[in-house]
Design a protein around this nucleic acid. Structure first.
Lengths: 189, 189
DNA sequence: TATCGCATGTAACGAGTTACATGATTTT
DNA sequence: AAAATCATGTAACTCGTTACATGCGATA
């Protein structure tokens, strides 16, 4: 999956591995997280496969900045992947729910502490998403796009949809935690 | 993580790998999915580590049924894990959002088809969760539990909370899809 | 007799995580 | 002078996925 995220990002513009890491942390990390170690190795692999090309940027500073550019083959691979729709649900992986499922024999106070901490974390994320949405709304890309160029106004609709999902997910999670905390508080012991 | 799911399940009663697979598919799979191949290999590993013991059940039928039982060491490992609370958010992995993020240059109709299919799938899951909740509610475990035994009524509160999460997640997802589909329908091209 | 459900496993691969490792530049 | 940020990578490991493989018993 990371493969296509990298191709997708480099389809907007050439970038270094480091820039990609920062870019991902500020956008796709909310629905697909990756470590820098995996990013660098995947970039090398994609270059070997001919989907990317790289150049050591020898500017004034002599930092070893390797800039990756997507190739035509890479663009085709990205398009090919996007053209094959998802036909099933992604298998869920929710550590907190695993823990809660088996928490019947745990100390009630400990469970509540854990849930309340999670509530705080989710609420922080919720605030972050709301802030990001506002930032986006305040900076609309008013430029008209040239033919052949990427239509940023259109892209924004899709990016905003993922942000909105983040917002809704966190709000739902907080609501569920409130409900669950209340139910567990009602238990004896 | 699967390690603790298996320990958690076997903490209720001894079971075969096959039974565990079915058990998981009917409960924890909604927040932690696993293939049978991984279940069998993990069970072997846990036995090597002394957290489980197994016996070939030589009953009337000569099916090679290997029944796993949790050891005291296994119970301690499970408790130890449950006692260490989660202090962070699980990194998200949402393939649909990855695809949507990079779908700005895709054919509008193709994107809508994909989202509508996902809507159907989530709605089916939603109906399933609601049905499961009703089933649970109709069959309350009224037996009093003996001291030292597992309090099923209490367990149920935790199990129901995970079911409720499944329900809320799917409802939220459907609502988000409706919203998103509408926005994309409004785009030109 | 053919297929379905029960029952168990291995092998190869790919994805993802954690830890280790280095060195330059910029800011405090 | 120290700390933070920029910048890139490797190695070992664990986890997860896909495919392959087998055989019994019950049902259709």
């Amino acid at each position: 999956m990371l493969k296509y995220i990298l191709l997708g990002m480099l389809n907007y513009m050439p970038m270094t591995g480091y820039a990609l890491k920062r870019q991902l942390d500020g956008s796709t990390a909310y629905f697909w997280h990756a470590y820098h170690s995996q990013i660098y190795t995947t970039l090398r692999k994609l270059e070997e496969q001919g989907l990317l090309e790289s150049e050591l940027e020898d500017g004034e500073d002599h930092l070893n900045r390797r800039v990756y550019t997507i190739t035509e083959t890479g663009k085709a691979a990205l398009r090919g992947w996007l053209d094959k729709p998802l036909t099933d649900l992604a298998p869920a992986k929710e550590p907190l729910l695993v823990r809660l499922f088996f928490s019947g024999q745990r100390d009630k106070a400990a469970v509540l502490d854990e849930l309340r901490l999670q509530r705080t974390l989710r609420e922080q994320k919720l605030a972050l998403f709301q802030q990001m949405k506002t930032m986006y709304d305040d900076n609309p890309p008013s430029e008209k796009h040239a033919p052949g160029e990427i239509d940023l106004a259109r892209e924004r609709v899709f990016w905003m949809a993922t942000l909105r999902m983040g917002e809704m997910t966190m709000a739902m999670y907080v609501a569920w935690l409130d409900e669950t905390i209340e139910k567990i508080e009602g238990l004896e012991g």
